[in-house]
């Protein structure tokens, strides 16, 4: 079987569109996930009364169910249950943010808890207030430790966005499916789709590597 480059060439504009949508969903997803995860991670690390139980339930539910089911739930079930209707794009971004948020919660909690208690003691012994200790010592150190696992999570989130083809969002994977149906050339289309994903995850990995190098992990 020969590889028809012209199929790839003709599909390119649509794939670029799909890749753009994938990038947008991913950026919103990891941005939202960072916000949720940082907040929830701090809540669990410091065992904020009551709230840390809510976070525990949230993390358990997200980690305990497949992301496809979460996407289906948000897109199809939420309108029935609570009269909230979201566009495919909004549902996908929200789903990814909630999903990444749960995992980032654990990353942040782990990073904060891994900071040597002795450093906190040293800060307090100097006469710093607890918020000052968090801001000047625990925070910067914990932040550095989140970077490698965050890079991992970002790449997982980017790839997970392919699942949103189940709710008809025209991201990269969904374009792949459509284009295959139109052209009947599965080999060319899925190879090209894979290369697109590879490029995007590679860029993400490079960015994380750069941040990591600029900031020595301690």
């Amino acid at each position: 079987m020969d590889f028809r480059w012209d199929v790839v060439w003709n599909a390119l504009p649509q794939m670029v569109d799909g890749a753009q949508l994938t990038a947008q969903i991913t950026l919103l997803g990891i941005g939202g996930g960072l916000l949720i995860g940082t907040l929830c991670g701090l809540i669990t690390a410091f065992r904020v009364p009551v709230l840390h139980w809510l976070v525990f339930v949230y993390v358990s539910v997200i980690r305990g169910t497949p992301i496809v089911v979460q996407a289906m739930f948000i897109y199809f079930a939420l309108p029935l249950a609570m009269d909230i209707t979201l566009s495919g794009f909004a549902a996908a971004s929200l789903c990814l943010a909630l999903n990444a948020g749960a995992y980032i919660t654990e990353i942040v909690r782990g990073a904060v808890q891994s900071i040597d208690k002795g450093l906190q003691d040293a800060g307090l012994a100097l006469g710093l207030s607890y918020p000052q200790v968090l801001l000047s010592i625990v925070g910067p150190l914990a932040f550095r430790r989140t970077i490698p696992p965050l890079g991992n999570q970002f790449i997982i989130s980017l790839k997970d966005s392919a699942l949103f083809l189940v709710i008809g969002v025209a991201e990269l994977a969904q374009r792949g499916e459509q284009l295959t149906a139109q052209t009947g050339r599965a080999l060319e289309i899925w190879t090209a789709v894979a290369v697109f994903y590879l490029i995007m995850t590679f860029i993400l990995a490079m960015i994380m590597r750069l941040i990591e190098r600029r900031m020595r992990i301690l």
Partner: peptide, 17 residues
């Protein structure tokens, strides 16, 4: 009270960053 005292620890506990 802590401001009146300086403390030196067994493990140094310098801020590594």
């Amino acid at each position: 009270i802590r401001r009146e005292t300086g403390m030196v620890f067994q493990q140094f506990n310098l801020f590594p960053h």
